[in-house]
Design a protein around this nucleic acid. Structure first.
Lengths: 342, 342
DNA sequence: CTGAAAGCGCTTACAG
DNA sequence: CTGAAAGCGCTTACAG
């Protein structure tokens, strides 16, 4: 392994000088700088990041903490898109990314405390949060820099990048109501996620504002899996007063919903309209093409890295949370106006 | 930050002794060990990994190199499943994972050489390879430990974990031939990937063995995207002698194929049968449910980590490449026997 | 503008 | 079984 000393010797200067050349120290003669840089290139020298980290107390690395049942996340296109946004900006800013996950629920702080106390990363990106999240408490107690992608109810001051998910669900529901629907159901996600909670609230708000009944039979909770949507339909459609429209928490879940409806012999959108969330690439190719709220997934990841780097630089955060705008993409699955309603 | 010296002082021993306790050195009295461990716990001490790495020349970290157009990969459920296998075993073995990607094609060795020369990782996992891959040449020249998930034609001695992709495509094609199909098409992936190449070969071998014609009009190359499959169909189905069955390189691509066929008014499997690869969770819920070759995606990732750790331990690799077994999951999309053929 | 020296938090022969 | 010392490859006041 070739070190800073080797370069120094070859260039006829001291190791300190080489170090200064590497870090573009202002008070170094351009002559010396050029000479040293030439030799570094010739020798294909790269600084040892571990040594650098040890003295600088900085790692140029960001940690990504995946929530525990990563299985679910990984089955979701949404996650890939988020990761893509993260990687793009981190790479651009010369940061490395360390991927970590909770090892077991019995010891859920284990992974995070290894990262934090082992000084392996400069800051942490939290992908999603539970309604009560000990990881956030831990990071706040440690005063360790982090950004949450999502929203925390219990830690309102935590730096967050999120959509306005009450509003996303409000918009989706209102769109269906505007088509004349009076009985709108909601296929939700895991109840311990803030995301599910917020969207449920937005859904209820929209019904209330329209003076429509909320009916608990029209709300079902599940997971972010196609199977979840698939299974929920037999129950829904057998209700005496079944919904004529559905808001579905996630595109994948909506695929399961569409499949179940097809098997049960219902037509979308004529028999029942569907709007979901995330607008993954596949939504457009579903049968029928799926109306979906585009939440700017890539932008969420990208922005989260920007915010975290600001924190690391000690910059002031002009606003918190940072809200990524969403918009409803209307496709065939909700393009059906109920008769008798203008 | 609390260091090994602080612990030593509190325990009334030397830093060397604390270090030995941490690494479970055999010649340490259990009395001393207990005492030191107690204090470490009380003080919530965690060793500084950077310092440890600097002297031990080891990082307990594995690098994951993503191929460049990561966009494609990330849109693919397949990738999530692979990553899940990697994370599971790496975490279990107390290794961290560094996620990296080529920054630009003009400087494709930049990211990898930062990892290798910066000594940030102990070994590297390569996700997929191109037919001519400078990254593999680089790693071999540097004698840096790595495992390729996939197969390299130009570097047959590189450690690899792969399916037998000639065989996977052979099996898929043979299954269709067994249903009586005489005109079988192939929707392939990017031609510069070894994977595409191998599966095309398996497809051709199967045709040849059955004494059937290969027809270049029945072969189309594209990307691992739904759109790719979608677009390929208008061409295929307008051929005078169009195929009655299709082998499709990837489930996502197959979704696009199914969608296009539905729009064009063809029934699957009656008008045309389809078999694809990867058997992602969604395959089962497609309309119709998709026959697919299960390639053991999770196992590929998991095994790749196992192999890489073996290399790091200096163990001998009993075989190379390691082949993960596959199996055909037959579903409705290929369950139709052409009349006049037993 | 440059160098010598101390130090980052660990590990590991060497000695006892 | 344990400690003192040297060293891993860097950076950074301090001095000139």
């Amino acid at each position: 392994m070739i070190t800073i000393k080797d370069i120094a010797k070859l260039a006829g200067v001291s190791p300190s000088t080489v170090s200064r050349v590497i870090s573009n120290h202002p008070r170094i003669s351009s002559e010396t700088s050029l000479k040293v840089k030439k030799i570094m290139k010739e020798m294909n020298y790269h600084p040892n990041m571990m040594a650098k980290s040890l003295v600088s107390k900085t790692t140029q690395t960001l940690g990504i903490m995946l929530p525990r049942p990563a299985e679910e996340l990984f089955q979701n296109y949404f996650f890939g898109e988020l990761l893509r946004g993260i990687i793009t900006h981190a790479t651009r800013m010369n940061y490395e990314l360390l991927l970590s996950t909770e090892t077991s629920s019995s010891d859920e702080l284990n992974a995070i405390s290894r990262l934090v106390h082992g000084r392996r990363v400069d800051g942490i990106l939290l992908l999603g949060s539970k309604r009560e999240d000990p990881i956030i408490s831990f990071l706040e107690a440690e005063k360790f820099p982090f950004v949450l992608i999502g929203r925390s109810e219990t830690h309102p001051d935590a730096p967050m990048v999120d959509n306005n998910n009450v509003q996303t669900a409000f918009d989706a529901t209102t769109h269906l109501i505007a088509q004349g629907h009076k009985r709108v159901g909601f296929v939700s996600g895991p109840p311990d996620l803030t995301l599910s909670h917020d969207r449920l609230l937005g859904y209820k708000n929209a019904l209330e504002e329209a003076g429509l009944d909320a009916n608990n039979d029209w709300i079902v909770e599940g997971e972010f899996l196609q199977e979840s949507g698939f299974r929920s339909m037999s129950l829904f459609m057998s209700l005496p007063d079944r919904p004529t429209a559905l808001v579905v928490i996630d595109d994948n879940v909506a695929f399961g919903v569409l499949r179940a409806l097809a098997e049960l012999g219902y037509n979308v959108p004529e028999d029942i309209s569907v709007v979901s969330f995330n607008n993954i690439a596949l939504s457009e190719l579903a049968s029928p093409p799926l109306s979906s709220i585009d939440i700017g997934t890539y932008q969420l990841g990208y922005t989260a890295v920007q915010v975290l780097l600001k924190i690391l630089n000690g910059e002031h955060l002009p606003q918190n949370p940072v809200i990524i705008p969403h918009r409803l993409i209307v496709r065939d699955s909700s393009l059906f106006t109920l008769s008798g309603n203008a």
